[in-house]
Design a protein around this nucleic acid. Structure first.
Lengths: 291, 291
DNA sequence: TGATGCCGTTGCATTTTATGCAACACAACG
DNA sequence: CGTTGTGTTGCATAAAATGCAACGGCATCA
């Protein structure tokens, strides 16, 4: 039983769903299934009733939940009270990431980082995810949350935190676009909404090139989030990472196209100049992020 | 941070010594060193001051110790209160092991097992460790704590819990034996005190055979513990597992002989008939032991 | 002051464990 | 009766833990 298990359990308690908890925690459902099974083994009792939908806490599970909350709280308090070793670390750190990363990674990372390093002035710049790498490389940002590019520029270090499939999306209206299946699509005719640059664009270009198709590009956009919005408005077909789609308020107005072969998934993670990883501030942030 | 870490930390707190804690926990010092380092990393503070001898808890370490005690207590209570799933398991289980195993493995195993399965009538038979395997094989015992033999009889399953070197020991008095070094020893003259049977005896026989030596066997004993006593009395040279020596009150009256090449270490662990491992009672005991 | 023993740490090879994917089983719903 | 949604499991792979042996610092003693 480790503390990560306790967090997993709390997430399961609130979501009552392996898949949803898995998304929240950036893990697969099978992993959660097995971790839960192991927890039950160690506790010596069944913690969830999986026969019902949604799965529900057993009485033993409720006791376990209280134990988990209490233990994590105690642990958090311990860390904040003894974390004097580093709390005098101060300075400024600039992090660049996409708006979506802001939703899915930053809340967790920031709250833990600020708790432990309250004196560090952490600045977050949001923008097109495609800019994360160049901004980090140029020193414009100290850390970037980015998709790992095909070829990582020399001098940069990358560490994956999650991966996300790259999806073709179509609007649910109007009907002429909404009803499409891959086989029916004339890619040279259908208007595409694509990233201006970045890995997503590279992957799409490659996909079309391999099929010797000259796509009709209707709009090029900086920022995957905007692509979802434009597609939702019925402008055309877009390509975005699943993570972006999931966090978009427009997600329900859009449909994922089943395209074969699929585009290679994104590996999303932390990125910094290798040389600077020795700096205390950067070490602290990486340590917190990868914990 | 997992619950095993917390136990490790409590052991370190009381022993203030990596080697000693390692013996208590059946782990190497290097493992404990790294586990402690990781705990400090996760806690964000140094927990022990290693500059002093013995190493001492820092103030942060003291807080951590309280957290560890509280958490393990809460965990223990949780398990005993929800362990209803299996607490109705009842029956009788016979375990055979040496006296030494009684000291080094049984306290931990028994306390955890009885807590979770209070209705099981657990009978412990002690005797020569060499008997563990045959007694288990014959069904005389359901489980044995034994050294893994060269060739495990068919139908038996073995799982290692610890390993222990096999040592030559000599008395500290009288002087004629106490002062010996390996090079000076005439193995065909010096009186030996050996196990009557079992793996220890097999290994010793093999050791002598490989050197084409006909040892002078003064006494053959059932039970390694008695060997230590006889050697301590000055009877001759003995061979016992380090684990036995460590737990013997006669340990201080005996000296370990540096012999090359060393005898192959014992692998000590649990042993049962494979077929019977499916029985609920045996499953329960194995699960508890290997947790 | 140099030799020796004690103790914690670290590089490396190995074993053990965790993870994701894909296939599966089963239930609810249309 | 298929279809969708959900948890589980076999398998190949990736990641982490472990022990051994070598190392370095420190105290003790000749």
């Amino acid at each position: 039983m480790d503390y990560k298990d306790l967090q997993v359990f709390l997430s399961l308690s609130s979501q009552q769903h392996l898949g949803k908890a898995g998304q929240q925690l950036h893990m697969s459902a099978s992993t959660l299934s097995r971790r839960l099974a192991r927890m039950e083994e160690e506790a010596g009792a069944q913690l969830f009733n999986r026969d019902t939908t949604p799965m529900q806490l057993t009485p033993a599970g409720e006791l376990f939940r209280q134990h988990a909350e209490q233990t994590l709280l105690s642990w958090q308090q311990l860390r904040s009270s003894v974390g004097t070793e580093v709390s005098d670390l101060s300075g400024q750190l600039t992090l660049f990431c996409s708006v979506t990363a802001t939703y899915s990674f930053l809340p967790d990372l920031l709250s833990r980082f600020r708790e432990q390093y309250p004196l560090v002035d952490l600045r977050v710049h949001t923008g097109d995810a495609a800019e994360s790498i160049p901004r980090t490389e140029s020193g414009d940002a100290d850390v970037g949350i980015a998709a790992r590019p095909e070829h990582l520029p020399a001098g940069l270090t990358f560490k994956a935190m999650a991966s996300s499939p790259l999806l073709f999306i179509v609007p649910r209206t109007p009907a002429n676009l909404a009803g499409m299946n891959q086989a029916e699509i004339d890619w040279s005719e259908v208007p595409m909404v694509l990233s201006e640059s970045g890995l997503a664009r590279t992957r799409v270009n490659q996909w079309f090139a391999e099929r010797q198709i000259q796509p009709h590009i209707y709009a090029q956009v900086a920022g995957n989030e905007a692509i979802v919005s434009m597609v939702a408005l019925g402008v055309g077909v877009g390509v975005v990472p699943e993570l972006v789609l999931r966090n978009s308020p427009m997600a329900s107005r859009v449909r994922v196209l089943n395209v074969q072969p699929e585009l290679e998934p994104f590996a999303i993670g932390l990125c910094s100049r290798t040389q600077r990883l020795e700096e205390p501030l950067l070490r602290a942030l990486w340590k917190t992020a990868l914990l």
